[in-house]
Design a protein around this nucleic acid. Structure first.
Length: 191
DNA sequence: AATCAATTCAACCGCCTCGTG
DNA sequence: ACACGAGGCGGTTGAATTGAT
């Protein structure tokens, strides 16, 4: 059950798993600010983090990096994701390189939870019309209005192949604390 | 208000590739 | 040529959150 926040003991070294604490984030941010990123296993040990190098790398790249953008995928980004996925398939890191600030993990999650759902729905509605073909264009053109998020409604415009959103909210998803808080604290800490 | 179902997304896992000795 | 470790990637999991009843 307690898959999260557990501690695994491997060769006398406690390895923490599960959600990162604010303290761990600050340690990682400060360490990378001083020493740079990379050589993650060494970094984890040197920084005093009871985490694997992989875990540190993932946390930094997907959440703590100052240039990472999270939430509020724009219609343009959504369209680009769909186009690139149609072109390359599940090459998430490759797709992410074309969306500045977006991570492969976020794009993967976004695709699976938002877009793929609509792919299946649309396929069910449109029957076999696109059997075996690259389906992205069909997905788009068969929809004139769809709910992408419970709080967002997107409208497709077939004439110019664009999507507009009517968004009733603009809150970014939080992970317990605000990143701006973290970065301001980190700056203070480094003073 | 309580309960259950559905959704989201952070984080882990396993596999693969690459560099090094 | 082989072994090993580090890094990177895609698939998957499951706790937390949100919505529905």
């Amino acid at each position: 059950m307690e898959k999260r926040s557990m501690i695994t003991s491997v060769q006398d070294v406690e390895i923490r798993k599960g959600p990162w604490t604010m303290e761990e984030d600050l340690i990682l941010i400060n360490y990378i600010a001083d020493h740079g990123e990379g050589v993650w296993n060494t970094l984890a040990k040197s920084a005093g983090l009871k985490r694997t190098g992989k875990s540190c790398r993932l946390r930094w790249l997907n959440y703590l990096r100052p240039d990472v953008r999270r939430g509020n995928i724009t219609p343009e980004e959504q369209l680009l994701i769909m186009e690139l996925h149609a072109k390359w398939g599940n090459r998430w890191s490759k797709i992410a390189k074309h969306l500045p600030g977006r991570t492969d993990n976020e794009i993967k999650n976004y695709w699976r939870t938002r877009i793929q759902k609509h792919v299946k729905q649309t396929e069910n509605l449109s029957g076999q019309t696109s059997s075996g073909q690259n389906n992205q264009v069909n997905i788009i053109s068969s929809q004139t209005c769809n709910v992408v998020n419970p709080m967002e409604v997107s409208y497709y415009h077939p004439c110019d192949n664009t999507i507009t959103f009517s968004s009733s909210y603009a809150t970014e998803t939080n992970n317990t604390w605000n990143m701006e808080d973290l970065w301001s604290m980190q700056l203070l800490h480094n003073e």
